[in-house]
Design a binder for these strands. Structure first.
Lengths: 232, 232
DNA sequence: CGGAAGATTGATCAGTTTCAAGCTCCGTGG
DNA sequence: CCACGGAGCTTGAAACTGATCAATCTTCCG
């Protein structure tokens, strides 16, 4: 009865949010966490549904999204192992603000609201970790709102490619999502994305081969990303 | 030397974030707070500037916004007395994510980063309050992203009017901002907003008189807001 | 009264979506 | 092994929404 508990505690320390916590806290967290596995494609929770807690991802990938009445999907986040989601519902006590679905088969940990708030109430360092997570998320949304309202699609795409290329300035970006999903993430539709990729290719900015995009003219992309995004 | 300190502590308790805190915590907060007054129109901080702390509003109004390269402005938040802003920079340690300017003359309290984190580190209840604030803000952004990417301007306007009309279903919404600002808040420009107001008037949905908007057909607005937003 | 800022209106234009039709890739099953 | 079928991707033409540019009107102060 001891070994599994220890294993589970170790897994918790792989979640950045909990990484720095002292052993006893981790064990307390292990005590309230409920494992859950979800097959690919399955909905995890829906917008408006009562928020009984949040999730941490051990393996797999989760997308958080909104749907328009006509069915168009706007992806808000794509979360990978080590990240948490659904935590907003924990602190506002209202329903989940968007839908969540497993992109691939997932193994998750569920942290029930009441129990978790109990832990946090007595542990400011855990609370500080949560504050950092939420702050980073707010920062991301701030940029997203800016992009959606102030930039056109080429600008958003350019910014996104540069972002994925990272500080290491990778020459080739490997998309680990379908172009349909990339479109949903950028707030547009696959047709438009396709056209823009083609145009950028013709202008010698990028070269696409399947789900691999080579960045040929970084400076050009940077111009497009920062000046709002018309490709001349 | 005593009286002003007490006054200032009392003022702190008017800020919802701090409202429930015990007296000694409030006094500690008073100890680190720096009063600051800002004339109308003046910039408070700029995007990217190092975030040395956050602000609470005692009087006045503050807008948080982004600018496009061409100068178009997207308002992210409008904050009123009792609210705080700039707190994301406190927890990420990076620069402010957007610009802040005084809409009207403001009196503010500034809470320096280090000192505030010190307080929060020892006080989970204060941290919980911050978590609630950030969560509400995230929820608002979630809706904003949804609006911007999934709804057209009439839909955003309809949703906004219903929101301002509130749960009490006020018949008349008194805009306390210029139409130019409302446009910036909705992610559009004054011309477009003006046209849509006119069209909605012609359709008998609303009647506008200066900065007062009467809601004539609530159900109609609800349809537009939820179905994405074409007015037939 | 004059003037400036905000608001409205019209004409035009660019960018994006929509609709529709091919196309490519790939796994399945004959 | 190859043909079939489907999902995702691409491309084209047309429709639409919102932005831009320009002109006029209103409001509200000094």
């Amino acid at each position: 009865m001891d070994k599994p508990a220890i294993d589970r505690t170790d897994r918790l320390s792989l979640i950045p949010l909990f990484a720095g916590l002292p052993r006893p806290h981790l064990e307390a967290l292990t005590g309230i966490a409920v494992p859950r596995t979800v097959p690919a494609g399955r909905r995890i929770f829906s917008e408006g549904e009562e928020g009984r807690g949040f999730y941490a991802i051990l393996t797999g990938r989760v997308k958080i999204f909104k749907l328009s009445p006509e069915g168009k999907e706007q992806i808000l986040h794509l979360f990978s192992p080590g990240e948490i989601f659904g935590e907003v519902a924990v602190f506002t006590g209202q329903g989940y603000p968007a839908h969540a679905a497993a992109e691939r088969a997932c193994s998750l940990l569920f942290f029930p609201r009441e129990a978790f708030v109990g832990l946090i109430r007595g542990d400011a360092s855990l609370a500080l970790g949560m504050l950092a997570v939420l702050s980073v998320r707010l920062r991301r949304f701030t940029r997203m709102v800016e992009d959606l309202s102030l930039k056109e699609v080429p600008g958003r795409l350019a910014a996104h490619l540069l972002y994925r290329s990272g500080a290491e300035k990778k020459e080739v970006v490997e998309l680990d999502l379908s172009k349909t999903q990339l479109a949903a993430l950028l707030g547009t539709i696959p047709e438009t994305l396709s056209r823009i990729l083609t145009r950028m290719g013709r202008r010698g900015l990028i070269r696409t081969q399947g789900s691999r995009i080579a960045i040929l003219d970084r400076a050009g992309l940077e111009t497009i990303a920062s000046e709002g995004g018309k490709l001349p």
